[in-house]
Write a protein that binds this DNA or RNA. Structure first.
Lengths: 214, 214
DNA sequence: ACAATAATAAAACGAACGTTCAATTAATTC
DNA sequence: GAATTAATTGAACGTTCGTTTTATTATTGT
């Protein structure tokens, strides 16, 4: 047999991406074989090579699009003309919502970096650094304006990102906590961590924010 | 050729463990071949099987001993008859010191869990859960005693552990920050995160603690 | 209806994988 | 110094890997 009835390039490519994210997240990139992936899609291994020239290029595509999605989500969510506190709130909410919504893709982007060639690794890390730079800028602004009390901006940014991204390790949708509750708790932990001086009114505002988004 | 002059079983086994930790941390478990590992040790691949019956058993041994080491380090460092604040300080300091000191082994234990068989995975996760339970107990005691102000003990424990363990992702010895500085900053971030009500005197005490250990 | 093109199957490639086995040599024991 | 044991080599096993090639069929455009 050859071309099958109803076969469609776009649908197949989308199916490959989705199956690849799930399989790599579950088994790891090296442990997933192209034959396994093809079977999951319902196709022969050779068909995959119509859409991705190599296994590594497939991995790179998944990672690049994940990072692009994260950047675009933040650009859409970032408030303009807002103070450091509000910007930090938006950053935390966007980060957690995005990562909970794409747990598998995040897993892939965080765990499989070492399987990329040096040039592709550099490219992904550049995107990641640019995204993290936004958080550092917020923390710096807040510290200079006196709203935050932070020892080391760079270290605090890394600690916050590790803490927030770590949510995908233990969070399972539909268990004890809702997304809104998780987001609200991470938001309050973040604000205390950076020593934000917020009164009762802003505190309530912050929680409303989280409830609305999640 | 066969047995080489000066060959010694104990030395070879130790060399295998060390090389395996470094190679797996760098390349990943699946990507490291037994031939690669053997070459790093300076031996033929078949020689590895005198010491570890399978590749997975080697991985499991590395992970189990890492977790045992972490548990033992905490048992030795845990203060007796101390309040939640002091116990939390000790927990943070021990965790960071241990993980910075064994960055590669931590990487292996955190990233390669999915390569274990179900029974071995369960065994490692049991050890990990027991270790994390200690932190939850501290947070619960501190909350009940009124010293901490925490929304959700379980969630906060996970967030703290993710934050602290994340230090191995970006920290490189001999760069901008010393181990003592990093530990002190993480300690103050932790205390603020849990809403610890500490005065100027205890705050200074906490920093001395960090300086001494690191 | 027919040509052109897109999508896939089937088979095969050489290389690398984890692992085993028999042979061989160094160290130890008596 | 002979017998025993410990440590390692070199070669081989069957399997699986990513990838390529060629043929075949479905769809699309005219």
């Amino acid at each position: 047999m050859a071309r099958t009835t109803g076969s469609d390039g776009e649908k197949t490519e989308a199916a490959i991406r989705e199956a690849a994210v799930n399989l790599i997240a579950r088994l790891g990139y090296e442990a997933m074989s192209m034959r396994q992936l093809a079977a999951e899609v319902g196709v022969q291994a050779a068909a995959l090579y119509r859409y991705f020239p190599t296994k590594e290029e497939l991995l790179f595509t998944l990672m690049r699009e994940h990072m692009e999605g994260l950047t675009e989500a933040w650009e859409a969510a970032a408030p303009t003309n807002a103070g450091p506190e509000e910007r930090l709130s938006a950053y935390v909410e966007n980060h957690i919502a995005f990562h909970i919504g794409r747990r598998h893709a995040t897993h892939v982007s965080n765990m499989e970096l070492r399987s990329l060639s040096p040039e592709r690794l550099t490219q992904i890390l550049r995107m990641r650094t640019a995204y993290e730079k936004e958080l550092r800028a917020i923390l710096r602004d807040g510290t200079e304006a006196g709203g935050f009390s932070i020892d080391d901006t760079g270290l605090t940014a890394m600690a916050l990102i590790q803490m927030m991204t770590g949510v995908i390790v233990w969070f399972r949708p539909g268990e004890r906590l809702s997304i809104a509750e998780v987001t609200a708790t991470y938001l309050s932990m973040t604000m205390r961590l950076v020593g934000a001086k917020i009164g009762g009114r802003e505190e309530r505002h912050v929680h409303e924010h989280a409830q609305l988004r999640a």
